[in-house]
Design a protein around this nucleic acid. Structure first.
Length: 387
DNA sequence: AAATATGATTGTTG
DNA sequence: CAACAATCATATTT
């Protein structure tokens, strides 16, 4: 057995386990560095042992010994099959990202179905296009970074997994390595990488949330409507002063004409009604202007910029064509109504819309208007108080 | 800079 | 849920 004197005594007792155990990893770069280190080390070791042992006569014996040892320790491996479930949080993050529109186009989501749904239509349809553009640009920027990072991680994970798998397969010639062990190893690696991914997802979520909150804040920032918009709105308001409650349809139309959203129209009417009611004195001038303009526009050919007089008046608008037969009458009647209506001449009328221009507003009385068309009021109030 | 105008939000109500 | 009322926060005017 010890015939030829070998000049080179194989130095296999390499320091296989220099430190006892690697310290708990925290940083991603640390993880990566350790991974790389382990890789090189393992590779060298494997190569050395491969050559050293493969040609050794004692290899079969060693193999069987290792088998025995393994059988004794196998149970402990099986026993330590605990699966910590951070899935909940990961899933939550996934869903969150998905909801923010960070749908993954390429990656088959690990468990998340590719819900390529558009953003919920209930929130904000095609609202403000200016700030919305900015918002979406930034969002897609985040998305891009997120995807590229994710891809990097996945690629690294895949590479490393392949590497380790090959290594283990090679080692399986020297020592017994079951496929299950390889699987386990792969699982461990995936776990590590998914932890990194989770960090990525979390920071992405944070970024998105920050962006979103900033966007919402920006929405709170007020910007005056365009002249066109205010004109359209005021025209409708003052030409329907008696019942300034545009229907949903009309709101849409007004929104379209003014280049604003329906909810903005609603806000505007809400503000306008209440502010008009609060003190009408301030709005007299405006009222005259718009009602006058209305009359002009309706009687004459429409000017180049204003075609806002053809707003679809909802059919139940009883007093409109019913009471006001001509444009001149309309102006008169409107102004009359605007100032006389609050006076409780007509005994308490009750109706869904009767709150407008009722009670309060002492200013009304302080601005006497010589309009003796009282009978109209009675009729008028009857008209829309009963609807 | 103070005052006012104005669009949006919030909380309440029917 | 729409309307109201109060309020916020900014824009514009003075």
């Amino acid at each position: 057995m010890d015939g030829p004197p070998r000049p080179a005594p194989p130095p296999p007792p390499a320091p296989r386990h220099p430190p006892s155990a690697p310290p708990p990893v925290r940083d991603t770069s640390d993880v990566l560095r350790q991974i790389m280190a382990i890789t090189d080390q393992s590779l060298d070791e494997a190569q050395a042992r491969k050559h050293a042992l493969n040609s050794h006569r004692m290899k079969p014996a060693l193999f069987s010994v290792l088998c025995e040892i393994k059988e004794k320790t196998a149970m402990s491996i099986c026993g330590t099959q605990q699966e910590d479930p951070p899935d909940a949080q990961l899933l939550r993050l996934d869903n969150m990202l998905l909801a923010e529109g960070m749908s993954r186009p390429k990656k088959r989501g690990q468990g998340a179905v590719a819900v390529a749904g558009t953003v919920t239509p209930g929130g904000c349809p095609n609202d403000n296009s200016i700030e919305h553009c900015d918002y979406r640009a930034k969002l897609s920027q985040i998305q891009q970074i997120y995807h590229s990072e994710l891809e990097k991680y996945e690629q690294a994970c895949h590479e490393f997994t392949t590497h380790v798998t090959n290594l283990l397969r090679e080692q399986s010639r020297m020592r017994p390595v079951s496929s299950k062990e390889i699987e386990h190893m792969v699982g461990v690696i995936h776990g590590k990488f998914s932890a990194i991914q989770m960090q990525l997802k979390q920071s992405t979520c944070e970024a998105v949330m920050t962006l979103r909150s900033r966007f919402l804040d920006a929405r709170r920032k007020r910007r005056n409507f365009s002249k066109q918009a205010t004109e359209v709105l005021n025209e409708y308001f003052y030409s329907h002063l008696s019942n300034p409650y545009p229907s949903e349809e009309t709101k849409e139309e007004l929104a379209r004409k003014g280049g604003i959203t329906v909810s903005q129209v609603s806000n505007w009417f809400g503000n306008k009604r209440i502010r008009y009611k609060k003190n009408m004195g301030k709005f007299q001038e405006e009222a005259t202007i718009y009602t006058g303009k209305m009359a002009m526009d309706t009687t004459e050919a429409e000017g180049p910029g204003s075609q806002a007089s053809r707003l679809s008046s909802p059919s139940p608008d009883s007093q409109g064509p019913f009471l006001l037969t001509s444009a001149g009458d309309m102006v008169l009647a409107l102004r009359t109504l605007a100032f006389l209506q609050p006076q409780p001449q007509v005994s308490r009328m009750q109706g869904p819309h009767c709150h407008f221009l009722q009670g309060s507003s002492p200013l009304v009385h302080s601005t006497p208007e010589p309009f003796p068309t009282l009978p109209i009021i009675g009729k008028f109030c009857q008209e829309w108080s009963t609807t």
